[in-house]
Design a protein around this nucleic acid. Structure first.
Length: 330
DNA sequence: TACGCATGGGAACAGAGCCG
DNA sequence: CGGCTCTGTTCCCATGCGTA
């Protein structure tokens, strides 16, 4: 490997001068600088990050723990976060391992901060993390972790959805998004759903919330099929997430029904791709760009002040598109 | 303006001291 | 004397302060 020493030998200067020249220091004459730069380029020099972080005590890397790789909503989050951190000179290391082993690996790489996406599995293991020197930011796990957190007011999002449908005249509303295994992130939404139904004096049916195995396409599909068999059939449905929504739309289509004429659909997850997933979706949630901006800011702050502890709660919005309409009385 | 030198964490190595 | 553990040293490379 080419090091600054090799460049120094070739250029006939000391390696500290090469270091300064490569970092565009004003302490090196422009002529010398250009000479050194051209030699570095010619020799194909790449700075050794390990050595650099040895001195600076910063690795310039941020570890992201992302255990549920199959969820579409999270994948657009991570893409954007990576983009924004890159602009700030950081690289992101992604781990899809379990929380404990992911953190251990990141410690060895000496990342400057760790971002953890909370999900059912990671939430339960937060308590077992031994205190460490690396700052940790969690997303989607407010109230479950001793760390700084950026989170979304999920309950409020679902309330917005219920109110929107109620305003359109719907009284019989279903909710698809209750996995069999206890998932705190989903439970919050479901509780808000039930509560808002009662608050608005709508029909509170026992089977309004549909059970399912998981939160993926097929789960939404099966739950929607079950819902469409109910009599009377709900006139509107709220979906717990984008993957479920895709399955729900499929089931409705196969049933020979149309959205929103026969069934209005509001989906959780305020993602750009929601503008058209067969139907332009009415959605509730915090826009991805807003979430990622807050996460990025919070991480950078945490690197500057590792001791600080901060919880940011983001308020969701309702974006009305073509998947919801007034109740038909025909 | 350019150079000398200390610095950082950890792997690899050298040497000392011990045991059977 | 071979084999072992334990301690101490050197090296990796880029950075940046102090100095010539």
């Amino acid at each position: 490997m080419v090091t600054i020493k090799d460049i120094a030998d070739r250029a006939g200067v000391s390696f500290s001068t090469v270091s300064k020249a490569l970092r565009d220091s004003p302490l090196v004459q422009n002529k010398t600088k250009q000479h050194i730069l051209s030699i570095a380029k010619e020799m194909g020099y790449q700075p050794n990050l390990a050595a650099r972080s040895l001195v600076s005590r910063k690795s310039g890397a941020i570890g992201v723990v992302w255990p549920s790789i199959e969820r579409a909503a999270l994948s657009s989050l991570i893409t954007k976060i990576n983009e924004q951190l890159e602009k700030k000179g950081y690289i992101t290391l992604l781990s899809i391992s379990h929380l404990e082993s992911a953190i251990e690996i990141f410690r060895r790489y000496q990342v400057d901060a760790i971002l953890v996406f909370g999900d059912r599995d990671s939430i339960s293991s937060f308590s077992s993390i031994s205190p460490l020197q690396i700052p940790i930011l969690t997303y989607g796990a407010a109230g479950y972790t001793p760390f700084s957190t950026v989170d979304v007011n999920r309950g409020q999002a679902v309330r917005l959805a219920v109110r929107h449908l109620a305003r359109l005249g719907h009284k019989d509303i279903a909710y698809i998004g209750e996995p069999q295994t206890q998932d705190p992130l989903q439970t919050v939404k479901i509780e808000a759903f039930r509560d808002e139904i009662v608050q608005l004096g709508l029909q509170a049916r026992d089977n309004a919330v549909l059970q399912m195995n998981g939160l993926e396409f097929h789960d939404g599909y099966l739950a929607a099929r079950a819902m469409l068999e109910q009599t009377p059939r709900p006139t509107a449905v709220i979906s717990g997430g984008i993957d479920l929504t895709r399955g729900i739309l499929r089931a409705i289509g196969e049933h020979g029904l149309s959205v929103p004429h026969d069934v209005s659909v509001v989906s959780y997850d305020n993602l750009p791709q929601m503008e058209d997933i067969g139907v332009p979706m009415t959605v509730v949630g915090v826009a991805i760009a807003t979430i990622t901006a807050h996460i990025t800011t919070a991480i950078l702050e945490l690197i500057d002040q590792p001791e600080s502890l901060k919880t940011v709660y983001l308020e969701p919005e309702l974006v009305v598109r073509a998947s919801t309409s007034h109740l038909n009385n025909d």
